[in-house]
């Protein structure tokens, strides 16, 4: 039988090793969600524009990123962006935290491809008459999108956007590949220090489950509350 020993796992150990990892994972998820939705919305607008070259560019972006495994994209971005770039945007902090920053950049661009498809569906779910109505009162394209279409698209798609974010939160564990210090890495580090590499995986999985599952429940409750009455 397995001979499991969790006695090493006390609050002091958790606080110094795992909590910083959790905070980073949450930060990565939140920053990526905001950045990814903003970038994704722009890509979606490009894809729905009347200019063929914009449509093409957006389609290539989305199709490419959705056809490559995330792990490879993480490795590529990490290896391709030179240290000088991080030094330029964040000084010595940037150089010291290269994997963590690389992960933020990678995830933002990668998730934008998925958010873009969600926002595209959301924009298309707003009836054409709403666009006409916006134009008819004198709005420009930008005003019509910002004030009329996107708020409705966003509301229609909020549950799907949040569900994608939960997937994103789980995917952030892949940054172990470039050595970023995230939630999982925190557990793995403790496992190494106390020579308990198998034991730490169980509480790690339990934590990911509890966080993701409660967020799913939250989304389900939210879903029924935010619907626009038509």
């Amino acid at each position: 039988m397995l001979n499991l020993d969790f006695s090493f796992l006390n609050w002091a150990v958790i606080k110094s090793n795992i909590v910083p990892g959790l905070l980073y994972s949450l930060q990565l998820t939140l920053v990526t969600m905001v950045g990814g939705i903003i970038l994704g919305t722009l890509v979606a607008l490009m894809r729905l524009s009347s200019k063929p070259w914009l449509q093409r560019a957006a389609a290539v972006y989305v199709d490419t990123l959705r056809s490559i495994p995330l792990l490879m994209v993480i490795l590529w971005f990490y290896l391709l962006i030179p240290t000088g770039f991080y030094a330029a945007i964040a000084g010595s902090y940037g150089v010291d935290h290269r994997p963590e920053l690389a992960a933020v950049i990678t995830f933002t661009f990668f998730e934008a491809a998925y958010y873009a498809e969600i926002m595209r569906a959301g924009i298309q779910s707003v009836p054409r008459g709403q666009v006409y109505a916006g134009y008819a009162v004198g709005m420009t394209y930008a005003q019509c999108m910002r004030l009329v279409v996107l708020p409705q698209a966003f509301r229609n798609m909020l549950p799907v956007l949040l569900t994608q974010t939960i997937v994103l939160f789980q995917d952030t564990s892949l940054v172990y590949a470039i050595g970023a210090y995230d939630f999982l890495k925190g557990f793995l580090t403790v496992g190494q220090i106390y020579n308990r590499p198998d034991e730490v995986l169980l509480p790690a999985a339990a934590c990911y489950f509890v966080i993701s599952f409660s967020l799913s429940m939250l989304v389900r409750r939210l879903q029924s509350r935010i619907q626009i009455i038509r």
């Binding site: 709403q130 109505a133 008819a136 005003q143 409705q152």
Partner: peptide, 18 residues
């Protein structure tokens, strides 16, 4: 847009902003 802002329009399906 400026021209349209001076022309009022009412639609079959109302098109209020929900």
């Amino acid at each position: 847009p400026k021209l349209r802002s001076r022309v009022g329009m009412v639609f079959q399906h109302f098109e209020l902003f929900p």
